[in-house]
Design a protein around this nucleic acid. Sequence first.
DNA 1: GCTTTTTTTTACGTTTTCTTTACGCGCCTT
DNA 2: AAGGCGCGTAAAGAAAACGTAAAAAAAAGC
Lengths: 227, 227
Amino acid sequence: MKPGKRILVVDDEQAMRRLLRASLEPEGYQVLEAASAEAGIREAASQRPELVVLDLGLPDGGGEAVLKRIREWSQVPVLILTVQDADEDKVRLLDLGADDYLTKPFSVPELLARLRVLERHANAGAAEPLLRCGDLEIDLAAHQVKRLGQEIKLTSTEYDFLKVLARHAGKVVTQRQILKEVWGPNSVEHTHYLRIYAAQLRKKLEADPSNPKHILTEPGVGYRLRG
Amino acid sequence: MKPGKRILVVDDEQAMRRLLRASLEPEGYQVLEAASAEAGIREAASQRPELVVLDLGLPDGGGEAVLKRIREWSQVPVLILTVQDADEDKVRLLDLGADDYLTKPFSVPELLARLRVLERHANAGAAEPLLRCGDLEIDLAAHQVKRLGQEIKLTSTEYDFLKVLARHAGKVVTQRQILKEVWGPNSVEHTHYLRIYAAQLRKKLEADPSNPKHILTEPGVGYRLRG
DNA sequence: GCTTTTTTTTACGTTTTCTTTACGCGCCTT
DNA sequence: AAGGCGCGTAAAGAAAACGTAAAAAAAAGC
């Protein structure tokens, strides 16, 4: 028999964590707990659970940030729990990458059934969040970039730029898309930003910045990270 | 523009079908309707929709049977609609293979968001569209062309030219159409562009550029990409 | 409040790509 | 057989896109 799937419960209320543990463990799940948004992100990144149950009502920054951060590198199924019942919230969260949404109070059997549905779906692409490109390691989960095992310090804009490329590693990302994702939809015309930050990234993580092996230019189209 | 995803609505109430059609068509879905369980099964089998919205409150045998029958041969995402709110029902339906469950009255934006989630899951495992023409591979998503597995560098215009031919692989594309799609409607007279770029493409992706096997000339008409 | 870091602005040299121009070949018509 | 026509090839000039450096402005850290 396999060891049960690991499921991460992110909730600040101890009572809720206890209830979930009591409900999930008899079903064969191995329950991991996190009591804050920060801890949730950390656990998700380090433990790589097969499922996540996320309470929106977290005190420190809210669960929404957790979902966003997880979705930067992982496709793990996330079920949202919440007390409120606002429509716009549901829609926004689902579009942000949440896979299901339950309002408290919920029925435990329904929760279990919905988790089974998520498990059924989960067999899809389990992408390795640690990207290796030659001498380069990009860990989207840990927000860390290494070259030859040594950590490289990137500014936040540089990291965002690299992140966009890494998420579509091997594929061309259009200038428009990069600008939109890094600088926002209002800056899609400032294509010179791309040249400047491409140069800065190459200076930091290419062996020979004038002969880039990783960050490749596709003239007239965009940039591409060699995978 | 692609034709929208086809979505099958199974519901005996005409008012509900009308509401769903009115909500879904503006989103780009192509709506198929069935007013009974029997019709639902028949439509699902013959039309193979990409999504199914199924009302449980059907008179003839109930929607449960529809779900069971569909699951015998298809993994199409099914979203259940129902008036009742009994826990055991939800659990049973979800375990029977339903992918989501909404109770009436429901909010249309939430329905749409949940349908988007189901679409996301359905597309997760699907490989990207790869156009194959003999030893040639054209990956439209990655903006990349390979020959015998080896990447070929194309300029933006060369790529556009090839893309037009590839979209109608095997068929003749007229000079007019190529010029219009690559250089815009104002350049339909510059037929010499075609000769230049056809030559460049042949130089890059034919084994013997003077004996083209892929990019064939149809004298007086246009060009054709052999499949 | 000042220093340090990061982002944005500005400017210019270089490379790549696109367009223009020119010429050779084969074929059909006259 | 000469000349027009459509196609293929080559190479030059024009234009666009890219890379780099450095200063000004803004933000972050102490």
